[in-house]
Amino acid sequence: MPRLATPLTESQIRALEPRATRYCVADGSGLVIEVMTTGSKIWRFRYTLNGKRQPLATIGDYRMISLRVARAKAQKYAALVAQGISPVATARRDRGAESKADVLREAAELYVATALAGKSHEYRRTTRRALDKDVLPAIGGKPIGAVSADDIVAICERIKSRGSPKMALHTRNVVKRLYAYLIARQLATHNPAEIVPARSIATFDSRTRVLSGAEIGVTLRTIETSNIRRPLKLALHLLVLTMARKSDLVESKWAEFDLDDARWTIPAARLNARADRVVYLPRQAVALLRELRHARSSENYVFPSVRGDDRPIAKSTLNQAVKALGLDVEHFVLHDFRRTASTHLRDMEQQSGARDVMQSEATDEAARQRHLLQSWADFVDSQIDAARHVANGAA
């Protein structure tokens, strides 16, 4: 009976480093991964037959076999052992079949099974659709290394001829992410989609990009369920709620906040302006800031660097966090949060009949602004709840 082991995760496997001698890490049910001194990782099956421990049966190279597939093979071999049959011959035949993984179609299956496992249902669906509808029918039979930039352009042109330039760009981005994954797994040496400029496929005026309510919900829900650091999740949420510029938020100091009065006063010196700017905080923003203050590691900065040198995080940190999420929101950039909030607020303002709420400094207008921003925060909450409901229903 194989010794019980804590099941591995893909991230744990990727983190395994070579040592002076090769070593094995167990996943359970006889499945182990052997890390070679060269850094290569090989799936093996450990078993006992007729009361004797047998040499490890080789399943195959980790680069070509996902954790899910390796577990399935281990279960198959365990069933053979239970019948008193050695799995070695079957494993050898299986390894011969794995040579197909140098074909893009098989590599794409590996990508979907591993890299997309933790993504949302909608993200997996749209990625799978792009692959199945346009990419794999055209180039699925090609070796990974034989796919060229011309192939990607041809696929995109066919999609554009259907009147879908945005879908063409989305498909190019799917291939780009697929090849980035294959390069990381050492299954590819170059990314043919990376050298195809986005502007050559579809143009989009980023100055007018506004996220819909549903996109706001999906974006913040994805951030909420991701594995990025909690302070970064809160920072991204606060960008939406406060309409602040990214630099204003990441460089903010605790001395600027009066959470009891729900006010954030950004000094004029930081704004390169003549006067301070007052940001009224909805109760959701106050709650996020209280959480940050409770767990703070800096007396000065709300978002301190993890290096512990009492300075704020780098301005690029939030961009990198968003990029790592692989958000399934077309043409989205971080600055769209601010434009999106402004647009939705303007609509709310017009509907409420309040005139020049965001510009006035009068006391009654400040009260109206508080009310309007609270309405905005409540709207954002409702979109997150809707996205959460959809995700739970899909699960």
Results as ranks from 00 to 15, higher is better:
Leu281Ser: 01
Asp61His: 10
Leu136Asp: 05
Pro312Arg: 05
Arg92Pro: 04
Asp61Phe: 07
Arg229Thr: 14
Glu157Ser: 13
Gln351Ala: 14
Arg311Cys: 14
Ala362Phe: 15
Ile59Cys: 05
Gln369Phe: 08
Ile384Tyr: 03
Ala394His: 10
Ala198Ile: 01
His190Trp: 11
Gln75Val: 04
Arg245Cys: 01
Arg158Phe: 07
Lys160Phe: 06
Ser99Asp: 11
Met1Asp: 09
Ala91Trp: 01
Asp27His: 12
Gly140Asp: 06
Val69Trp: 07
Arg3Asn: 11
Lys166Gly: 07
Ala130Lys: 11
Ala287Cys: 03
Gly308Leu: 08
His121Pro: 04
Lys133Glu: 08
Leu104Cys: 02
Ala269Asn: 08
Ser297His: 07
Ala72Val: 12
Phe379Asn: 01
Leu334Val: 05
Ala70Ser: 05
Ser305Glu: 05
Ala366Phe: 07
Leu232Ala: 13
Arg199Met: 13
Ser99Met: 07
Arg274Asp: 15
Arg128Leu: 08
Ala20Met: 14
Pro304Cys: 10
Leu241Phe: 06
Arg307Tyr: 09
Arg71His: 07
Ser352Glu: 13
Arg199Leu: 13
Leu373Glu: 01
Asp205Pro: 01
Ala57His: 00
Arg129Thr: 06
Trp43Gln: 00
Arg172Asp: 03
Thr317Gln: 02
Glu365Pro: 06
Pro165Ser: 09
Ala20Phe: 14
Asp328Gln: 13
Pro55Thr: 15
Ile85Gln: 11
Ser352His: 05
Asp356Ser: 11
Gly326Gln: 13
Ile216Val: 13
Lys160Ala: 09
Leu236Tyr: 05
Thr363Ala: 15
Cys156Ala: 15
Pro267Phe: 01
Leu169Tyr: 03
Leu116Cys: 02
Asp27Asn: 10
Tyr301Leu: 04
Gly51Asp: 13
Val81Asp: 07
Val357Gly: 02
Thr6Ser: 09
Asp151Arg: 09
Tyr77Ala: 03
Ala138Thr: 15
Ala387Ser: 10
Ser164Cys: 14
Ala82Leu: 12
Ala130Gly: 04
Arg177Gly: 01
Ala184Lys: 14
Arg158His: 12
Arg46His: 13
Gln83Asn: 15
Ser352Lys: 13
Gly308Tyr: 02
Tyr179Thr: 01
Leu271Ala: 12
Leu234Gln: 04
Ala295Met: 07
Ala366Thr: 10
Val333Asn: 13
Ser206Tyr: 06
Gly353Lys: 08
Leu249Thr: 00
Glu194Trp: 06
Ile59Gly: 00
Thr222Cys: 10
Asp260Arg: 12
Ile155Ala: 03
Ala235Val: 05
Leu325Cys: 09
Val218Pro: 00
Arg199Pro: 02
Ala70Thr: 03
Ala255Met: 12
Gln383Asp: 06
